[in-house]
Design a protein around this nucleic acid. Structure first.
Lengths: 144, 144
DNA sequence: CGGGATGGTCAGGTTGATTGACCACCATCG
DNA sequence: CGATGGTGGTCAATCAACCTGACCATCCCG
């Protein structure tokens, strides 16, 4: 077991959780949702909507990355882009009715996954895992 | 903070460690090595070489995935494919002289990264992190 | 008004995998 | 000996989740 394996375990952990989430979403009647979509559902203002750039910064990804996700959700009818009356450059990403239902279900799926993960690891281990990851990633993006 | 964030933290952790590794490899004079290459350097029999399928299974990836890595390393002169005298279907992936030097350096880079990571997290947290990841991924690939 | 910053978009690339299809060859059963 | 199923390697296509760079319209500040 080496640091390289640790790196791969992290990746695999990511995949496992993402797959769980997709499965859970499927069971809840949303087979076309993927883990990445949650970045929107978790960070968007449910009523008023949120700008793309704001979504990106909340989800800590680039606006280009967020674009892909929003494009996808828009094509599937979960969100739409509306003009921002306060800034002609900006557009506001808003949930459609379908999107609001999906967001609610998605939040439940996330909560349930979190509960299951805690149950599997135990609360202590779960907390330590989060702490360790924050330390690994949170700093300046560097271990050394 | 939700389970979805946990998933993204895992991915980000993976990225951070991979980036550290690449950086360290660069500093050691191997700017063309990437984290994925270590799967070979860590699992190949240094003298006698190892079959592709065996490498894949040791590194827990598909043979197609291992192919890509080996193709890449071969193109860069780190390994070569030799016929297996015992099985005409098989080829043995062997380190070149260049590959042996790189593998040694790569092992040092990995050891150093591991040491630094332990220093940052503390031994206890590091161990718990590994345990938690094993539990998350190790089972049947399922949390529930 | 001029010029830099901001919001959104397009184009293209990267990493680390995946599934499916194939063929040559081995091993064994009859 | 010959069919048959499994194994080793390969090719092709795809995926997810990103990234950087370049751009343009618009905003805001001096």
């Amino acid at each position: 077991m080496s640091a390289a394996d640790l790196g791969r375990s992290l990746l695999e952990g990511h995949r496992v959780l993402a797959a769980e989430l997709v499965l859970s979403l499927e069971e809840r009647g949303y087979p076309d949702l993927r883990a990445g979509h949650l970045a929107v559902f978790q960070h968007i203002d449910r009523r008023s909507g949120t700008r793309l750039t704001e979504l990106a910064s909340r989800a800590r990804m680039t606006k280009q990355g967020m674009m892909l996700v929003v494009d996808d959700l828009e094509a599937r009818g979960y969100v739409r882009r509306a003009a921002d009356p306060e800034d002609a450059r900006a557009k506001i990403v808003k949930l459609t009715a379908h999107g609001r239902r999906a967001a609610a279900e998605a939040r439940r799926a996330v909560a349930s996954l979190e509960a299951r993960t805690k149950r599997v690891l135990g609360d202590r281990r779960y907390e330590t895992l989060r702490e360790a990851l924050d330390q690994l990633t949170g700093g300046e993006g560097s271990v050394g």
